[in-house]
Amino acid sequence: MWNWIQRFSSPKHFYSMSVPLIKWFAIAALVIGLYGLYLGLFVAPTDYKQGDSYRIIFIHVPAAWLAMFIYMVMAVSAGIGIIWRIRLADMVAAASAPIGASFTFLALVTGSLWGKPMWGTYWIWDARLTSMLILLFLYLGYMALQSAIDDQRSADKASGLLAIVGAVNIPIIHYSVEWWNTLHQGASVAKFDAPSIHIDMLIPLLLMAVAFKLFYATMVLVRTRNESLYRDRNRRWVREIVEKL
């Protein structure tokens, strides 16, 4: 079992196995994303209170969900890297951070643009917005630690511990709207009751969420491949690839 995991998690094996996956994830993300956008922007009905402004939900909510999802992937990979010393797991964590930071930024910006006309302000220090800003800082801190330490193993250990410690922020983001009085509304979909969103709006929202996840799957594979080439630049399997070019 252990030998099997070690063989399949070797960067060399991953580098050749990931090629077909990338293609299919990219195609699925594109198709589902375009269909979701079409349904969301042209087919879904207008909202009874917000009119058409609510349509930013089809970008904002999938981006925020994905930002939290990527953080959990990053923290779990970092934990696997620290405990079992699987190099591929450290590479996945390092490759995920900039993608997660981008989607956190996207969620913050789209929320801010929606907040001005709807709430009357671009920004407010309520628990949901603040914990989301902390998530962005955690990502940036992880990336800073990765690049500040020259020795790769120390860098993975230090930034990995930050990622694991920061995971405590994820349930705080999710429950912030329940634990405190926030300006941000409560959950419409991710709760035990029936969703408080009409089915014709819910379907494009879920399609967009799936498309965003597939986009992340594509990007993390591409970036992990690059990361493995860079980290193993002095190893034989990379030299063989370079020589063939």
Binding site: T46, Y48, G120, I197
Partner: peptide
């Protein structure tokens, strides 16, 4: 000095609200 509107978590078309 500032008045902010708080939105609830309900999203539906106007016909459904009616």
């Amino acid at each position: 000095d500032e008045v902010l509107a708080k939105h609830d978590e309900n999203y539906m078309p106007p016909e459904v609200a009616d």
